[in-house]
């Protein structure tokens, strides 16, 4: 796992076999488990992909403003992870939060409306792309200070522990977060207090334009050398939705079993720039193409068809259905009213 050059992307991705705590035996069985609803997983990944494409289009039209960070390429990670949670679990996300929000079942129309800044948005147009919230779904944001969401997640987990429930908190963060001091503070705190917290590192290998190998002592491969303060960690192929789900199930099971915080590193890749303002001068298109060859939105349904789990027709039907859902969300957002200016002073204080 010591390789660290850009041209080595393919071998890196192939080397991301799930393993745990330095144990070389594969943790995860790649046979398709029959209990998982594969079509649901595909549908959600496809929804996120199409939603993000629609976001990009509407950003170009000027209907979405501010910073827009798309989740294109990372769908298998978010969908696999969130599919392993219960309704009473909390999710905390970072600024690339659309995928997590949709995977959690947040209303597609209202999320799109939030990006359009409309009154019908999830935060009534006051949050924007980086600040999606749905407390009813226990989706606790959308946070845009890198690593700032980690202690919030620790506090949610602390409340779950204090209230003596077996619910847990899943906290997503990127590779860039791990160089913030608060990352280390929070892991230590979670470890000493045995919080029911699942640290979920989405390692897409770039913090904006900085390759993680340029800015991190230890390079691209976090696992197994990453400082987790004794928190059990495992690595998973973030382009494989079933592997992510299975890894999540294992970690979630341990947390519910009272074993304290767990840590998952998913190796993944965004196929697009950091934001819509990113010309991607910092990386070669060859690397992007290599990863696109592993696109979960293409490879997963192909695999399902090949194994006879679903038919072409079923996949096509789902795509049509999702395309309509996304188109309707854009219509909904566009037709929604702007927030009334009288709303400026609301929601500051209780």
């Amino acid at each position: 796992m010591a390789s660290s050059t850009k041209s080595n992307a393919k071998s890196r991705s192939q080397s991301s076999k799930p393993s745990r705590n330095g144990d070389s035996a594969p943790l995860l069985n790649k046979d398709l488990p029959s209990t998982v609803d594969h079509l649901d997983l595909f549908k959600m990944m496809y929804l996120i992909r199409q939603f993000e494409i629609a976001c990009g289009e509407n950003y170009s039209k000027g209907l979405i403003r501010g910073f827009l960070h798309l989740y294109i390429g990372q769908e298998a990670t978010g969908v696999g992870a969130v599919s392993g949670l219960r309704e009473d679990d909390y999710i905390v996300s970072h600024y690339r939060d659309h995928g997590h929000a949709l995977a959690r079942g947040m209303d597609v129309n209202r999320v799109m409306a939030e990006l359009f800044g409309r009154a019908t948005g999830t935060s009534k147009g006051k949050g924007g792309s980086m600040h999606l919230f749905d407390v009813a779904k226990r989706f606790m944001g959308g946070h845009a200070i890198v690593a700032g969401q980690l202690p919030l997640a620790a506090g949610l987990a602390l409340a779950q522990q204090y209230q003596k429930t077996d619910a847990l908190t899943m906290c997503f963060f990127g590779d860039g977060s791990t160089n913030q001091g608060v990352y280390h503070e929070t892991l230590n705190l979670a470890a000493i207090w045995k919080l029911p917290l699942l640290f979920f590192l989405e390692n897409n290998m770039y913090g904006m334009g900085s390759s993680i190998e340029r800015v991190r002592a230890g390079g691209i491969d976090f696992y197994p050398g990453i400082a987790t303060y004794g928190i059990p960690a495992l690595e998973v192929d973030g382009m494989d939705v079933l592997a992510v789900k299975e890894a999540t199930d294992v970690a979630v099971g341990k947390i519910r079993n009272g074993e304290g915080p767990q840590f998952i590193e998913a190796k993944t890749f965004r196929f697009v720039g950091h934001s819509l303002a990113d010309g991607q001068k910092y990386r070669g298109q060859e690397e992007v193409k290599e990863w696109e060859g592993r696109d979960p939105v293409l490879t997963f349904p192909a695999k399902l068809i090949e194994m006879g789990v679903v038919t072409d027709k079923e996949i096509a039907r789902i795509k049509t259905e999702v395309d309509e859902t996304v188109a309707k969300s854009v219509d909904f957002a566009e037709q929604s009213p702007e927030p009334d200016l009288s709303q400026i002073y609301n929601d500051v204080m209780v």
Partner: peptide
């Protein structure tokens, strides 16, 4: 709760606990 010397982490944890309905 005695905390480590980690002001960011324990203030953030207070915020999270408050968001979940406790009164830290």
């Amino acid at each position: 709760k005695d905390t480590p010397i980690s002001e960011q982490a324990f203030v953030g944890a207070g915020i999270g606990a408050a968001a979940a309905g406790l009164r830290p």
